[in-house]
Design a protein around this nucleic acid. Structure first.
Lengths: 126, 126
DNA sequence: TATACAGTTCAATATTCGTTGAACTATCGT
DNA sequence: ACGATAGTTCAACGAATATTGAACTGTATA
């Protein structure tokens, strides 16, 4: 995963309306939501929502699919998890014990690392 | 976890220098880094770094501890994971099977939910 | 084809953010 | 106490962001 992409993701999530919209789509799951549903849920004028949805889409955090005259948006959970994996790369210099301590035993991140590095193939993988 | 806090976290991570600084601190683990080390690693003037470190600190993503005339910064991994948990709340309407599909089988998030809801005690948990 | 509906695009404005240089505070070594 | 080191704070300027209203594109329906 490139840093530019990661920055776009974080910037996308650093606005109230985009954060709300994304969380709504996360809750909606694979079914996603149509733009109008999001606008209603967030009580936003359509042009403003469109602006934010565009940012979310360009970041890759959401996908759009046309459905008649509707636009159906869906959360890209995978990208979000890849982003977290990017943040955690070489956490604690890859010392698992020190890392567990720092996390307060929250949950093991190892599966994230493995998956992320296998799929996004970071830098040295090639 | 409150939305305001989450927004601060994402805004903190949506700048190149803050993202770099945070990742450096993640790699450094519990030992953290002194401001000068970060400035050297990132090739930034101290006043500019100070500006960004302040934002990171205010978001809670990093902590500071004075050490003689140095300031030692450490990543708050826990907050970052809590933030991810906030994003994933009620993912796919809490349908684990649909959720696993959406994630592309990346890794199970259940431990995140449990931990996050147990500690931050969100809204409907009670 | 004409009308309504669903969303997007555009221009303008106000606000916020990031960088720079200068001055400042606090600590260490002598 | 003095100078040097480590960092922070402040003011100012340019760049980027968010919101609004108006006009626009495309799809459905009569």
């Amino acid at each position: 995963m490139e840093q530019d992409k990661v920055l776009q993701v974080f910037e996308a999530l650093s606005s109230t309306v985009r954060l709300d919209a994304f969380r709504l789509l996360v809750r909606a799951g694979g079914g996603g939501c149509v733009a109008g549903e999001i606008a209603a849920a967030l009580a936003l004028p359509p042009n403003n929502l469109s602006f934010h949805l565009k940012a979310l889409t360009q970041s890759g955090l959401v996908t759009v699919e046309q459905e008649g005259r509707f636009q159906r948006y869906r959360a890209n959970i995978r990208l979000m998890l890849d982003t977290v994996a990017y943040l955690m790369e070489n956490c604690c210099g890859d010392n698992p014990q020190a890392c567990a301590e720092l996390r307060g035993g929250m949950f093991t991140l190892t599966p994230i690392f493995e998956s992320a590095q296998a799929t996004s193939g970071e830098d040295g993988a090639a």
